[in-house]
Write a protein that binds this DNA or RNA. Structure first.
Length: 499
RNA sequence: GGCGCUAUCGUCUAGUCUGGUUAGGACGCGGGGCUUUCAAUCCCGUAACAUGGGUUCAAAUCCCAUUAGCGCCA
């Protein structure tokens, strides 16, 4: 009845992501979300967001909000979810316990699941025994055949229990869209715990119920779920539910090729935002982590990704997260933005994340825009701007007088050099104080001055340092134009006093 | 320990299905041009088919084994 193929052809596929709000949205989850989103959009289906907050101790509202925020920021929008509703809600697992209970009771009634009263100590002893005998450590099935009266009695006594699923002794085969046929012998798994009690179902059980009731046709998730899949299929079959189509994505790895985690310095998506990465760059970058189009092209916006995306071209092996490449993508996107748009983005960014936001108020968009324009080739991410362009907003530059010295110049020569620059700049009218003009005038002066002609640095280096206070910066012409005649001359004065 | 997944430059990858490529692209890295510095940019370069057996005139590609890495369970 619920053949996914049928519903796919009629309404498009339904894909989902089901993060648990026990931490901030991280890159791996964002990538899984993106692939589900791209797949659903490409085939005219729906992308569903479900929150797996069945663990009340670890689940936090703050994390749930962070997941929404991060996904929205990346432009990955869901069609159904806890915040916007939908026809198959509720979309928060904590609000679905009545539903789970119903199915749990069904399994219990049909004798496909049972209460287990074994204590953790017993279980541990069993496990050790199995291992010592070279057997796979699975549950012995001790409580499988407890008489119903005994179960009732134990329950009434409040004896500690869990609900176990009777794993059928057979082999499960399933087709993975990315990996092909995968088969696993359920005999090796044993009777897994599917709930702590009727009101506290566990992941492998609840996910099956949710995916069925939400009419999920395609389960696209991380490779780390491959070994859960046969268990979930067994539960589906016990309940007589249809099997969705599976696709297991390769893992995102840290530099040591193990699962990307905090210890690799992996940060939540919102943290990348704080560092000044553009959402488009992150989306483009993570799309290429485990997926690649047939062409050599690498830059894709969301619309193009939807058009190009195909699960067939998803990689099987894990992909190392490479910040260098992310930086490159980000710098590409940064430079393709219009200056007006970028100025707006920068101002918003600085206001939100810079501690110098106050300082910024004194400066016009025009000023900010010019600063961005000349610093643009030097930055990978917006936070770089704060470090590189601070001298445009700082009144008192702090630098050592030694920095003013170009190569083997003496301090006296540096002093002379700055005085010469000041003299030339002084002669330029306020309204002609533009970079090209400044450059022309300074170069003319250099041409007729033997002491500078062979080595322009003797004039330009001290000037540039006087204006920027840095050993690396844009050219003095560009800086001077932005600073304006008055401030430029003032900074030269300050420099002269330092010598 | 058991089971599962994976294997092309340092990294992301194209090529593998359908055997014949100087094994391609990108990031990074190195060198050079431009240049007052740092960038940007342009040019050049660096670097890979995990190993061992087969099959074949011919193997990155097909088959088998091994090794290694990772994941899940506990």
């Amino acid at each position: 009845m619920d053949d996914p193929k049928t519903s796919q052809s009629l309404f498009g596929p339904r894909a989902r992501i089901a993060p648990s709000p026990t931490g901030y949205l991280h890159i791996g989850t964002a990538r899984t979300a993106l692939f589900n989103f791209l797949f659903a959009r490409k085939h005219g289906g729906q992308f569903i967001l479900r929150i797996e907050d069945t663990d009340p101790k670890r689940s936090k509202k703050e994390y749930e909000e962070n997941i929404y925020e991060g996904l929205k920021w990346l432009g990955i929008m869901w069609d159904e979810g806890p915040d916007i509703g939908g026809d198959y809600g509720p979309y928060r697992q904590s609000e679905r316990v009545d539903i789970y209970e119903k199915y749990l009771r069904q399994l219990l009634d049909e004798n496909k699941a049972y209460y287990c009263f074994c204590t953790p100590e017993e279980l541990e002893a069993q496990r050790r025994d199995m291992i010592s005998r070279g057997l796979p450590p699975k549950y012995s099935g001790k409580c499988r055949h407890l008489p119903p009266e005994t179960v009732k009695q134990y329950l009434a006594q409040g004896k500690h229990s869990v609900i176990r699923f009777k794993m059928p002794p057979k082999e499960v085969k399933f087709h993975d869209l990315i990996r092909g046929e995968i088969k696993v012998d359920l005999n090796l798994i044993g009777d897994i715990v599917i709930a702590r009690n009727l009101r506290e179902p566990l992941y492998n059980f609840s996910v099956v119920i949710d995916d069925y009731l939400m009419k999920i046709t395609h389960i696209i998730r991380g490779e780390d779920h491959i070994s859960n899949t046969p268990k979930q299929i067994a539960i589906q079959e016990a309940l007589g539910l249809p099997r969705p189509i599976y696709a297991h994505l390769p893992m995102i790895l840290g530099p040591d090729r193990s699962k990307l985690s905090k210890r690799h310095g992996a940060m939540p998506v919102t943290e990348y935002r704080k560092m000044g990465y553009l959402p488009e760059a992150i989306v483009n970058f993570i799309a290429l982590l485990g997926w690649h189009p047939a062409s050599d092209r690498e830059i894709f916006n969301m619309e193009e990704l939807i058009k190009e995306f195909s699960l067939k071209r998803v990689q099987k092996s894990g992909a190392v997260f490479n910040v260098n490449k992310l930086n490159w993508f980000n710098s590409q996107y940064l430079r393709h933005l219009s200056l007006d748009k970028l100025t707006k983005i920068v101002r918003e960014y600085l206001q939100k994340y810079s501690d110098k936001a106050e300082l910024l108020k004194e400066y016009s968009d025009e000023y900010l825009r010019k600063v961005i324009e000349i610093e643009l080739t030097r930055i990978n991410k917006l936070s770089d701007l704060i470090v590189l362009s601070d001298f445009f907003f700082e009144k008192n530059l702090r630098y050592s007088p030694d920095l003013l010295v170009w190569r083997d110049m003496t301090l006296a020569e540096v002093k002379q050099s700055l005085q010469d620059s000041a003299k030339v700049l002084q002669q330029i009218n306020q309204k002609d104080f533009l970079r090209s003009n400044i450059q022309v005038k300074l170069f003319e002066f250099i041409e007729k001055s033997p002491q500078y002609r062979g080595d322009k640095g003797r004039l330009l280096w001290p000037l540039r340092v006087a204006l920027s206070g840095k050993k690396a910066s844009p050219s003095p012409f560009e800086i001077a134009e932005i600073l304006g005649k008055k401030e430029t001359l003032r900074r030269i004065e300050v420099a002269l006093k330092k010598i």
